[in-house]
């Protein structure tokens, strides 16, 4: 089962895999967009998704609130026994995630 989820008006289509849900982070991951993503991830996990793929290909800026949201997504996924994948990270975002320990809990693609 593949579920593609996007909050972008013109969403990119993620790589499908079994029980995987793709979430596109958008260009600026802040509270407004972040909380939508968090809600959607929770819905997908409740619906049985075992993998959440967060696509950062369009993401230019991530602030502290965005980090907190992603930590929430990781926590929810871990509690549900699912894994989180961060894909298409920009180097500066990867550096930030690494520095704050997010990369210890996710697979980078």
């Amino acid at each position: 089962m593949t579920e593609n989820t996007s909050f972008d008006p013109d969403p990119a289509v993620g790589t499908p895999s079994a029980q995987s849900a793709i979430v596109i982070a958008g260009d600026y991951l802040n509270k407004l967009t972040g909380e939508k993503i968090e809600r959607e991830c929770r819905d997908k996990l409740n619906a049985g998704a075992r993998e959440i793929v967060v696509d950062f290909s369009e993401t230019e800026i991530i602030n502290s609130i965005g980090i907190s949201i992603l930590l929430g997504v990781i926590d929810d996924a871990q509690n549900a026994g699912a894994k989180v994948v961060f894909s298409d990270l920009k180097p500066e975002s990867a550096e930030l995630f690494d520095m704050l320990g997010l990369t210890k809990h996710v697979t980078i693609q």
Binding site: K31, S64, I65, I67, S68, L71, I74, D75, L100, L102
Partner: peptide, 15 residues
């Protein structure tokens, strides 16, 4: 709520 987000996000605090 936002303050908690900012604090968590500033230092990478899980909960």
């Amino acid at each position: 709520r936002t303050s908690l987000h900012l604090l968590s996000g500033a230092l990478g605090i899980m909960r």
